[in-house]
Design a protein around this nucleic acid. Structure first.
Lengths: 353, 353
DNA sequence: CTGAAAGCGCTAACAG
DNA sequence: CTGTTAGCGCTTTCAG
């Protein structure tokens, strides 16, 4: 029954024609404009429904400036943190009548630039981004022009609000937990300090030692790309040391996967041979045997907050955020993978905390 | 330096004005139209770059009918299968100059309808969808009007191509593997038969028995929503039977998570007390102890194929696909969680396959 | 309360 | 090879 024009799509003109009224009236009715006869509104709605009408958001956009799209730029959708965040954000957007446009940067600044460019072309209303370590100048420049909220990672060059976890505190908790269990030779496998998260987490590791009046051992730290392979190699390297660590803090889920591969490869038994603490708590950590001690990030809260701030910025049509909010506090969930250091193995003097 | 108009955005007219040429020439130059002086093209490109121009894809869309957007509708981004697929698809889209619009249905037909509606309003060029069990009439109707490729799940009402795994074969392999190891009382924890995948998988389970000239035991099957809670309860129920299974096939990752929770709750030791085979192979199955036997779906191939078919449909401007392609063959990866049934426990006569 | 008309930025005929 | 012109579907004055 639909009146088809060249494009085959139903337009407000079709509705107008079928009702014998002006298309501008249809537009007003559909947008719930106050000065329209309620009865007319109802008739228009019915006709729209019957004809299978859907607004052409492109055309609408041309008038009103921005689309009902929000860009989400993440390094990796497979990372549980990001996909959990994506879920919440998608939900939130749907609630506000927006759609999420997914852009995966793979931590490659070139891809990131292309993605931002594409989002700009799509005239997204705003962007949620966990940026790469060194975004291109142009990337930063473009993001400046858009309502932008950074989450998890924070790049100082990018304006706008940022929502993050207190990574320093989080890793500090993880490390202090191990120190409290008597460990002194504690390894650290984390992501490169080029990333804000990597830097903060490494600081957290060092802080924990300083707070306990101990000296962090830089020789037990391994920093690299957040990929399982690096985690595996780092673990094997650390355990191959003349004086290997008795516990390890693993600062990212992808690294943890590699570390566990290494654990199996070396046939280590956890926590007897080695205590482990993970950063960012995953579903399956609970069912590993022994269950894995982990520091949980409040993903849901963080994602919701990021979305909230973005919509606030969008509504105010401002491109500047209020700076960064109080960082979210990570929570330590002690489980079976971390245990007190057996006295026999204790390698250094036992300074209790 | 950018010439700003009402919207503050640079348009091709600005570029044209700055160069003293017609805006249509700029358009042609930017679109690499053949009949344009190479030198003019270069000048236009330079000017566009200098002014920070980005096409307004909404405006472009109005002329050319569809946007450079592709919708991706999944029930759950947290499911490893879907996020792996999303990654590949996003990649593929970026390669073709498209952006993925993420829509999460949460297996709720209402949400699905809203998402499809939103995608239609955004005039996406096509849709990749893993549909809910009973999509609304309107949902199906709308998808019919769009280039659509279904993946993983297949709903017969939705036209277009479908890319799926051979779920019957996959679960059959999993079950046959256990039968081959001497198990006879084999439990099955799977998703509801309302879903195409659920139906096929349950069939695979039954087929394996029939092929081995054994009788499947419906009393050992538990079907429900793909959520961990259901998996946990199903396991506990099955193990509470007077004559409990000695092995279990778990037909979805989310269910597997719950099953493993149950395993820990009941303090079962795997594979001594119970053999397990999972469906859909996850990274962390390899590092579980013992490593989990799983049937791997070729996600990457499936996702790439789905994207490929969609772009083919988009290019042909057709809304009909070539029907469903040969289903992808799942591969069994035997690992430590499945072992031969100890003779002492063997409950039935040992018919070897 | 409703209609007529303008114009958003772009592409594509049609003329040169 | 380039300019002129029309018009995509919509919102938004400006008149009634």
């Amino acid at each position: 029954m639909a009146v088809t024009r060249k494009t085959g799509e139903v337009t407000i003109k079709d509705i107008a024609a079928s009702l014998g009224i002006a298309h501008s009236t249809v537009s007003r009715a559909l947008n719930d404009h106050p000065h329209v006869n309620p009865e007319t509104k109802a008739r228009v709605r019915r006709a729209a429904q019957a004809l299978g009408y859907a607004v052409n958001s492109g055309a609408r956009m041309m008038r009103s400036g921005a689309s009902r799209l929000v860009g989400l730029i993440v390094p990796d959708v497979q990372n549980e943190f990001y996909n959990a965040a994506a879920k919440i954000m998608a939900d939130y957007c749907a609630g506000e009548g927006y759609q999420l446009v997914l852009a995966v940067s793979e931590d490659d600044p070139e891809k990131e630039l292309q993605q931002v460019q594409a989002l700009r072309e799509a005239r997204v209303a705003g962007v949620l981004v966990a940026a790469t370590a060194s975004p291109r100048r142009d990337t930063i420049q473009m993001l400046k022009q858009l309502p932008t909220v950074q989450f998890l990672r924070r790049h100082p060059g990018i304006a706008g609000h940022s929502v993050r976890a207190d990574d320093v505190l989080g890793i500090q908790k993880a490390t202090a937990h191990l120190i409290g269990l008597g460990h002194r030779r504690i390894g650290y496998v984390g992501v490169t300090e080029e990333l804000s998260t990597g830097r903060a987490r490494a600081d957290g590791y060092r802080n924990a030692f300083l707070e306990a009046r101990l000296k962090p051992n830089a020789g037990l730290m391994r920093l690299g790309a957040p990929r399982p392979e690096f985690g595996r190699e780092a673990l094997i390297e650390l355990l191959g040391l003349a004086n290997p660590p008795t516990a390890i803090v693993v600062a990212s889920p992808r690294l943890m996967l590699g570390v566990l591969e290494g654990v199996n490869r070396l046939q280590l038994s956890i926590p007897e041979d080695l205590s482990l603490v993970a950063y960012s708590d995953l579903d399956w950590y609970r069912v590993w045997q022994p269950a894995i001690t982990a520091v949980a990030l409040p993903v849901a809260d963080m994602a919701a907050t990021a979305a909230l701030f973005l919509f606030r910025q969008i509504q105010q049509r401002s491109t500047e955020g209020a700076g960064s909010s109080t960082p979210f506090e990570p929570i330590l969930n002690p489980r079976g993978s971390s245990a007190a250091l057996p006295a026999t193995l204790k390698p250094v003097k036992s300074a209790r905390r």
